[in-house]
Nucleic acid binder design. Structure first.
Length: 749
DNA sequence: TAAAAAATCGTTTTT
DNA sequence: CGATTTTTTA
């Protein structure tokens, strides 16, 4: 036993040890980047258990499944697997979801409730705004979803929202919100936000429930506390009110989830909320070189709102940060790949390299560059396995098996494969269901009563529900795994992909099979669980692939996805104005948050950090010129190798401007770039200037070529700007009216 | 009803 | 430019 204690406390610095051994009362651990945060959390839990606290009295909340899994794994290496397993740990969403399934009746749900992901939510909101007669243009549902989610994160119910709505937009949102809540309830479904909110509702419903969970979770730990939102904050407060054994760990400098409702004040005000709180700062960084940490520190120092702290390291000075500019994003990607190729394979393996970017869209040029260099790479957090269409279709079929009220699941798969129920028949059935106030599944069952429904459609609908009913019975009465496999076979989904015969279809088939065998394994290993637990797990797990971080590939990911990770070599691509800090509609939403994001990116690097940017980039099909990011100019120059680039001049505090003062021209940036590596050939792609001829506007009488319609003569022009249209009389296709911005008309000499 | 073509969007970040 | 939705037509 003495050994175990030694194992837990050895190798901790003084501050870490203090944090680990303070187990009663409120505690805030401000853990700077690379300061051993996870170590403190896991050792603290181990220490608590070692001191005699029952593991299942400990609740540990994280934001990602990965963090939870890592924690459990590290605790088991300190103690035993069994003890680690008894600690109640997981993400907010999965822990609360699990409890809600047990207590569902308290809040008027069944324990079979479905979880609606963003995709499902989208379908619900679209249907509602259509029913309400609101504008159903392409992206019109998105602002509604956003406002509803923001309201939920703020714990405003539909009624609260309605009462406060003073503008047309808010009034409309209130209507959608109200209908949305009603729809979810009727479908026995909760969205992600509901998992948090309903947990709070449950705790507040009656005192005995609150006490039950307060006593169950006598010790609560929260990881990444800077990312908690209001609902999470309230839930934590309720749970810990009785015993006050709350330990939160976080770093205000790494708060990057404001857009999802995270409130940095939760961590900034921790002491105000808990006057008895002890605060421990972990300021020694064990990850990065002095140059990298120095650069990151100098950048984050520009933020006003933060807990004062001084991160230091005893690591070597290391190489300076390289800032590199390229002609365009393809060149940038090409050179990043080339550099990795020269560095990797000897001392470093591929997985020692990471390329980070602000938006997912930026991965495209990187991917193609990596393919050209035949470098192994892996995109982290992109399209996850569980988000693939075919996987979600199977999941929807399964949801239908356990939750008959789930009409979104039904509508998702009704024509997957096509069953001869077209838009017209479906509309008739839905209208009938709405008129009678019954679930769509019921309407399907009573298809023969639906007025005006073709016989063929009646049969199709009846056949569909019968199939589900048959296999539901099988599922509940016998071998669950077998029933599921036969059910999916019976849906015709597999047959549909088999008959397609394309490569894509084959991939999809493989995914379905992988999913099915995953389910069977899950059900075999966890006989006490059923499908809902499995479905909950997959809908709350963001990336299936995140488990194989060990694969020896270069990792490509967004900066958000990189939080908590570290790599010897880090490239941050797209360090340009407009991209980082990201501008939306010409403005930066929250500069300090963007700066924190940059800080997170920089502090992922252990030995070497490259910051790169393109001078040109495609956006919406147009070429746009870019300057280096403001943030590049904010990094103290001592830590940077090359610092005379255009961004320094551009972002220098501007002297008073003299209008039309041509003599004060801005100095031009150096025309020649320092080559990244001399022996690497530059990419051959060149962006040839558009021939002069093509810039003169097309006019009536010109002969043109169209990629599909061939040659023709312009007989008329109309509209202006983006709306400009040309009427062309094609030799083989006759007259067509084409929008110039889409139809690539080439003038023929 | 379903497939093919044209129009219309849009770009953060994710549990 | 590319993904997705709407319209057209076979």
């Amino acid at each position: 036993m003495q050994d175990r204690l030694a194992k837990i406390l050895d190798g901790l610095n003084e501050r870490q040890r203090e944090a680990v051994t303070t187990i009663n009362g409120p505690l805030l651990v401000v853990a700077g980047a690379g300061s051993g945060k996870t170590k403190v959390l896991t050792h603290r839990i181990a220490y608590m258990i070692e001191s005699g606290i029952t593991p299942w009295n400990i609740l540990a909340l994280t934001f990602t499944n990965k963090a939870a899994a890592e924690m459990q794994q590290r605790i088991s290496s300190l103690l035993t697997e069994e003890e680690a397993y008894q600690v109640y740990s997981g993400t907010f969403h999965s822990v609360f979801g699990r409890i809600l399934r047990k207590e569902a009746n308290i809040i008027g749900y069944s324990s079979n409730y479905s979880i609606y992901d963003t995709d499902d939510q989208e379908r619900v909101v679209k249907k509602i705004i259509k029913d309400l007669g609101f504008n159903t243009n392409k992206g019109s549902h998105k602002p509604f979803m956003h406002r509803i989610s923001a309201a939920k994160n703020d714990l405003l119910t539909a009624d609260d929202y309605k009462a406060e709505a003073d503008t047309i937009v808010k009034k409309e949102t209130a209507m959608v919100y109200e209908a949305y809540e009603k729809f979810l309830k009727e479908n026995d479904a909760m969205d992600f936000d509901d998992l948090l909110i309903n947990f709070i509702v449950m705790l507040q419903k009656d005192k005995s429930i609150l006490e039950k969970y307060q006593n169950h979770f006598r010790f609560v730990l929260v990881d990444e506390y800077q990312d908690t939102n209001k609902a999470q904050y309230i839930a934590i407060r309720l749970l810990t009110k009785a015993h006050s054994n709350l330990c939160v760990v976080g770093d205000d400098a790494q708060s990057i989830y404001k857009w999802r409702g995270a409130d940095i004040r939760n961590i900034l005000d921790f002491q105000k909320d808990n006057p008895a709180a002890k605060i421990i700062r972990l300021e020694q960084n064990y990850r990065s070189t002095k140059n990298i940490l120095g650069g990151a520190n100098s950048l984050i120092a520009k933020n006003k709102e933060q807990i004062p702290k001084k991160l230091f390291t005893e690591n070597p000075q290391g190489d300076k940060i390289d800032i590199l500019k390229f002609e365009n994003d393809n060149q940038e990607a090409f050179n990043i790949a080339a550099t990795i190729k020269t560095k990797g394979g000897y001392k470093y393996t591929w997985k020692d390299f990471a390329v980070l970017y602000r938006t997912n869209a930026q991965s495209r040029s990187l991917e193609s560059a990596f393919r050209k260099h035949s470098l192994p790479y892996q995109i982290i957090g992109g399209m996850s396995f569980y988000k693939r269409k075919e996987v979600k279709d199977v999941a929807a079929y399964l949801r239908l098996l356990v939750n008959q009220s789930d009409s979104i699941a039904l509508m998702r798969v009704i024509n997957e494969p096509p069953r001869g129920l077209g838009t017209i028949s479906l509309t008739k059935i839905i209208n009938y269901a709405t008129r009678n106030g019954e679930p769509i599944v019921t309407a399907f069952r009573n298809a023969e009563n639906v007025p005006g429904l073709q016989k063929r459609a009646v049969n199709a609908a009846t056949k569909f529900v019968n199939m589900i009913d048959t296999f539901r019975e099988k599922y509940y009465s016998g071998d669950k795994g077998l029933a599921i496999e036969q059910y999916i076979e019976a849906t015709g989904l597999i047959e549909m992909y088999q008959s397609l015969g394309t490569e894509e279809a084959e991939d999809r088939l493989n995914n379905i099979n992988e999913l099915l065998s995953d389910i069977v394994t899950f059900l075999t290993n966890n006989p006490e669980y059923g499908l809902h637990e499995y479905l909950q797990t997959i809908s709350l797990s963001s990336d299936f692939e995140e488990t194989d971080m060990n694969k020896d590939c270069v990792k490509l990911m967004t900066i958000h996805a990189a939080k908590g990770l570290e790599f010897p070599y880090v490239f941050v691509a797209g360090m340009a104005e407009g991209l980082l800090p990201l501008e939306r509609n010409g403005a930066v939403e929250d500069l300090e948050e963007e700066r924190r994001l940059m800080y997170v990116a920089m502090t992922r690097a252990m030995e070497k950090l490259y910051l790169t940017y393109p001078a040109q980039r495609y956006s919406f099909g147009d070429i746009k010129s870019l300057f280096g990011s403001l943030f590049l100019s904010e990094i103290q120059t001592d830590f940077v190798r090359n610092n005379n680039e255009d961004f320094m001049i551009r972002h220098k505090p501007q002297p008073p401007k003299f209008p039309n003062n041509f003599s004060k021209r801005r100095p031009r940036p150096k025309p020649k770039e320092r080559p990244f590596f001399d022996d690497i050939p530059q990419q051959e792609e060149s962006y040839s200037q558009i021939p002069e001829d093509d810039r003169t506007p097309l006019k009536v009488g010109d002969r043109v070529h169209h990629s599909k319609f061939g040659e023709g003569k312009i007989t008329g022009m109309s509209g202006a700007g983006n709306m400009q249209k040309a009427t062309v009389n094609f030799d083989n296709f006759g007259k067509k009216s084409l929008m110039l911005q889409f139809a690539k008309l080439v003038r023929l000499g």
